[in-house]
Computed example of a mutant assay.
Amino acid sequence: MLHRFRCAISNAGHDMLSGHVEVDETVFGGVRHGKRGRGAGGKVLVAVAVELLSPKGFGRCRLQIIPNAETETLKAFIQKHIKAGSTIYTDGLTSYPSATKDEYIHHGTSISGSGKDANEVLPGVHRVAALVKRWLMGTHQGSFEEDHLQAYLDEFVFRFNRRKSAHRGMLFFRLIEQCVAMHPMRFRELVANPKPKNEKQEFAVPSNLRNKAPASLDISVPTHPWRSALP
């Protein structure tokens, strides 16, 4: 049922971000040796966009899995989620100037040349990235598969963008509204890697790990005073 809700969220129409928007990428995945950041092996690259409010604070966000951080990929993400004419703030990645050319006002800042930490240059995207990772590790205990990650990201965006709603019941109403508008989905459409029906996985539980009644509840032992018959 939760995946049905997430599918309804991901298929619903969304207003585009506008105004001043930060854009960056982050990686999802366990701790592994080797290259860090962009291009890290065995991890998932996710694009992040966050509205900046005046004089301070953050507005709505968008999260989307992307295959790489090349110009055409980032351009497609930006055009899909950010309204043309908006001002976009990024780091010094060379893909961004071409990705935002002609349609957006772009301000890029080299992290290494600024003398500041990345979370100081782009506080919005780093705050959202930290929150979603903490949410996945806390609420979901980190038990998600790469094939289902986008669905979890969509759920987080739905929650984050409505975090200041004065009428909490409207969140439930909007979710049900989206579920009603959503086309029916079968189980095999919800799961990323469905197993054939004839493939069963047996789990043998060792005898020493099986649930047993505590010794104090053993009715065959007459020595327990609470088991003695009343006079």
Rank of each mutant, 00 (worst) to 15 (best):
L2G: 14
L2H: 06
H3K: 13
F5I: 13
D15H: 11
D15N: 14
M16T: 13
L17Y: 07
G19L: 07
H20D: 13
H20R: 10
V23H: 06
T26N: 12
V27G: 06
V31S: 08
H33L: 11
R38Q: 07
R38M: 04
A40M: 04
A40H: 05
A40Y: 03
G42S: 12
A49Y: 00
A49T: 03
G59Y: 01
R60L: 00
I65R: 12
N68K: 03
A69N: 12
I82K: 00
K83Y: 06
I88L: 09
I88W: 04
T90P: 08
G92V: 02
L93F: 07
S98K: 15
K101N: 05
Y104V: 02
I105N: 14
I105H: 13
S112N: 12
D117S: 07
N119H: 14
N119R: 08
H126F: 01
R127D: 04
R127C: 05
K133N: 05
R134E: 11
M137W: 02
Q141W: 01
L149G: 07
Q150N: 05
L153V: 08
E155V: 00
V157T: 12
R159D: 08
N161K: 06
R163S: 07
G169R: 02
R174V: 02
L175G: 11
A181N: 13
R186G: 15
A192Y: 00
N193D: 14
L209Y: 08
R210W: 01
N211F: 10
A213E: 05
S216W: 10
P222I: 00
T223P: 01
H224A: 15
